[in-house]
Design a protein around this nucleic acid. Structure first.
Lengths: 351, 351
DNA sequence: ATGAAAGCGCTAACAC
DNA sequence: GTGTTAGCGCTTTCAT
């Protein structure tokens, strides 16, 4: 006997059923359940009772068609495979569900074209708002500007030059934290390994690196290697540095790069942090699983997602709100890769 | 002048507008666009032209209310933060969008209760199908069985004992691959570090480990450490092994554990793979960023997602299809952590 | 505070 | 092959 699925099309209970059971009109049921207008306590009670008894659930599709809000939010990330994003997505999904909303997740695969398609699809679906981390400073602009005209939109982490809500951390301050720490453990020569792509965050991080180091060591301030935000580039860049004038500290633009750097240093027999100290940026899962564990600029991933949703929902409720910009403070998670060698000796040991 | 958003509520163009513009009925427009019934080439042409000219897009909400399909799929994963899942999600989202469908993503936070809530929410939203990776062998069963009765459902990776479609890899074969490789490079004593939780995949992996090793070395066959699927447990377990009788090879139930093991071995001054060889399972991002790079049983993550969608959509189209079970073949990605020491010497060097 | 009734935009019968 | 029409289940006037 072959199992056949879905024999029983559980006939959904409608608002009409509830109205009948409660002995009131469908309008009253709707009002009682949504609270859109006051109802007599007695009516409320009858409705609630019938609702519970019949196990009624509002049909969100019908509600959306009539009411013009879908209780859905779309999120577009450049690459869900980069561990930075799942952490944010998790937080977004969590908060959203507590508000009775659902999340359409889209991955733009780092392509502005795909990104524009996804945004268009979300708008077409009638999402109440969009959270997006734009792929490219320039190429993403048009689609995001257009979307922001139609629905509330918040840019998260990265952002293009569009008048919308923005939630991000202070990347410049993060880089400064990393450098201050490296200096405090005695590092006196530096390099910065980053991406060649132009994004708001890459630019901020680079500017902060140069600003901080210029007064200290012009050589270090200009020791900047540009590739992309990948492990491979981290490896390549580190090998270059080792070949040339290897600095005592390598500041990396994200954790992926930092892990590549760690691999390369190890493969060349260099000890971390004794020979070279390394810092990452993001401080997600990767920093914790690194070997040795990686000191990294911590981004409050959960807060980033939570605040993005908070901004979005407030903008959904009141569309006349002016765009706001939230800049969270980063911190530094100090781990083995830059642990001070001893309490009194401030220098990096060189054995 | 403060910017105010969404002044222009771009009045959506409806099927009526297209019908008027094309000089046909709304029914013809619907038929022409959906292909649900044949229309005269001339009609088709007029409709298409008007559609393009007005930039018409079908309203998915209205379509869903009337047509009983929403073109949405729900996916529930236990923890989007585990790099295994983002890779699968990416593939699912990608394929889905090519089919004109959208993805509701939910994270159950490894909780059967949350999982049940999310599944209920998805059903209430009228998703056409569900892809789920169940949290717990027993506790997830009820909600999944109930959902599978209402809509097509495919279990991915992990699965509970419910008559539904299933897509997974052959975990037993994967473990066998890892052990065979370790033997081929001369390992003669083993340990298995895994989770204590009961899941279909954990059980399969463990059974395969014991089955394979029993004939070779009963001592090794029973050297099994159970904790959970985390880096922390990997570290703890490795330290235990080092304390007691450290084997020459450590087989890990996933990459997270393997990374913890690598950290612990390094912290104790043991060299990988010279002193101890290590293998992981999943072979996602983590295996590549590991230091040293980790030999790992490769799961075809992209294929897993793609096949899950394929199964789901075919079940959506024909609900009378019997449940199917797809078991993909794993492979082994050999990296530095178990690289043979030399072509002729089969043994692990011990210096 | 409540009910009756009019649609939201679309698709599926049902006629022709 | 095409048009007409009746809703899908809900929210919201408009009366009362």
């Amino acid at each position: 006997m072959v199992a056949v699925r879905n024999k029983i099309q559980s006939t959904a209970v409608t608002i009409q059923d509830v109205a009948a059971a409660a002995g009131v009109s469908t309008a009253s049921v709707s009002r009682a359940l949504s609270g859109s207008r006051p109802v007599r306590p007695e009516t409320l009670h009858k409705v609630l009772e019938a609702t519970r008894r019949l196990n009624y659930q509002v049909n969100p599709v019908a509600s959306a068609l009539r009411g013009k809000i879908t209780k859905t939010v779309g999120m577009v990330v450049p690459d869900i495979t980069n561990p930075f994003f799942p952490a944010v997505v998790k937080s977004v999904e969590d908060v959203l569900h507590d508000l009775g909303m659902s999340l359409f997740l889209c991955d733009s695969s780092e392509s502005p074209v795909v990104e524009a398609e996804r945004i268009a699809a979300l708008l077409n679906r009638g999402v109440d708002g969009i959270i997006v981390s734009p792929v490219d400073n320039l190429a993403s602009r048009a689609a995001i500007a257009a979307a922001a005209k139609r629905v509330p939109l918040v840019q998260i982490d990265r952002h293009v030059n569009v008048d919308s809500d923005i939630v991000t951390v202070d990347h410049g301050a993060g880089i400064a934290l990393a450098i201050d720490h490296l200096i405090s453990i005695g590092a006196d020569s530096f390099a910065f390994v980053t991406t060649a792509k132009q994004s708001s965050i890459a630019n901020e991080r680079l500017a902060a690196y140069m600003r901080k180091l210029r007064p200290l060591d012009r050589m270090s301030a200009h020791r900047v290697l540009r590739g992309d935000l990948t492990v491979e580039w981290g490896r390549t860049a580190a090998l270059k540095l080792i070949d040339e004038s290897c600095p005592r500290a390598i500041v990396c633009a994200n954790d992926l790069i930092a892990l590549g750097v760690l691999q390369a240093l190890r493969s060349q027999g260099l000890k971390v942090p004794q020979d070279v100290a390394v810092t990452g940026f993001d401080d997600g899962l990767l920093a914790q699983v690194a070997n040795p564990p990686l000191t990294s600029v911590h981004q409050p991933l959960e807060a980033l997602g939570r605040e993005a949703v908070r901004m979005l929902t407030s903008a959904i409720e009141d569309r006349s709100l002016p765009p706001r910009k939230l800049r969270l403070a980063p911190s530094l998670s100090i781990r083995e890769s830059t642990v001070p060698t001893a309490s009194e000796t401030a220098g990096l040991s060189s054995n």
